[in-house]
Amino acid sequence: MRKSHPIIKALALFTVWFLYLPLLGVAVCSVNTAKGGWVWKGFTLDWYFKLLDNEWILNSAWNTLELAVVSTAIATLLGTILAIGISRFPWGRKTNSFLNTMLNIPVVIPDIIMAGSLVVVFGILREVSSIFDMGMIDMIIGHVTFQIAFVALVVRSRLALIGQDVEEAGRDLFASNWYLMRKVMLPLMMPGIVAGAMLAFTLSLDDFVLSFFLSGPDSQTLPLFIYAAVRRGVTPEIHALSTLVVLITVILVVGAERFSKKEIA
C-alpha cells in the first residue's frame, strides 16, 4: 500500500462528490415538503406513501420485474447451453472466431442501433401475427438478445476455470452423461450461471433504450415512467421513486458482491 499525494486525494474526492451530488440532491428533495421547486421547506415521508397509491407506478414496477425475470430466465437457459456448446467441443479455428463474433456483437453494438433494427423487424412481423404488437413480448425478445451474450461470456469463463480433469475423472468412474451433468458439471458451473443471471437481471433493470423503442401502451416500465414524468416536469413523487430505485440498486450491488466474495473464499 502506498500513500497517495494530497492533490490526487483531493481530485479523487471531488470526483466521487461529482458522481453523488446529483443523486443526493434528488434524495433530499424526496423528503422535502415543498411540492415544486428546490427550496427546503421541511421533512416528510408523504411522497413515499403516495407512491403506493399510484396505480401507474405499481403497474410499471410490476412490468419492470416481469420483464427482468422472464428475460433473465430465458437468457440464462439459452446462454448457459450456448457456453457449454462453445467450450466443450473441439471446434475449428473458423467456427470459434464466428462464435466469438456472435457473442461480442451485442456487447459492443450501440443499443440504439439494436433497438432500431428490432423496431423494423417487429414492424414487419406484425403483419404476420399480432403477437408482435409493440409491448411486453417485443421487449422480452429484445432484452434476451443482449442478455444471452453476457450470460454465455460469464459461464464460458467459469467453464475455462473448471477445466476438463473433473469430467475425465467422472467418465473414468463410469458416470453416465446425465449423471455427469447433474452431479458434477452443474454444481461446478453454478457460481458462473448465478453470476451470469445476476448480470442479465441488472442489465434488464437498467435498460432504457430498448424498452423505450419497443414498449406498448400497457408495458411501461419504471425507467420509462420516470422518463415520461421528468419530461412533463419533476415532482417530489418522482424523486421518491428514483431514490427508491437507487436504494434497490445499492442492495443488489452489495448483495452481488457478498455472493461473489463467498464463492471465491
Binding site: 446529483p22 441488472t202 437498467d206 420516470i226 419533476v234 428514483s242 443488489l252 450491488v253
Partner: peptide, 12 residues
C-alpha cells in the same frame, strides 16, 4: 452509479 439507471442519473 455504474448500475444506477441512466434516466435517474441524468435528470438528477
Amino acid at each position: 452509479p455504474f448500475w444506477t439507471n441512466m434516466v435517474i442519473r441524468t435528470y438528477a
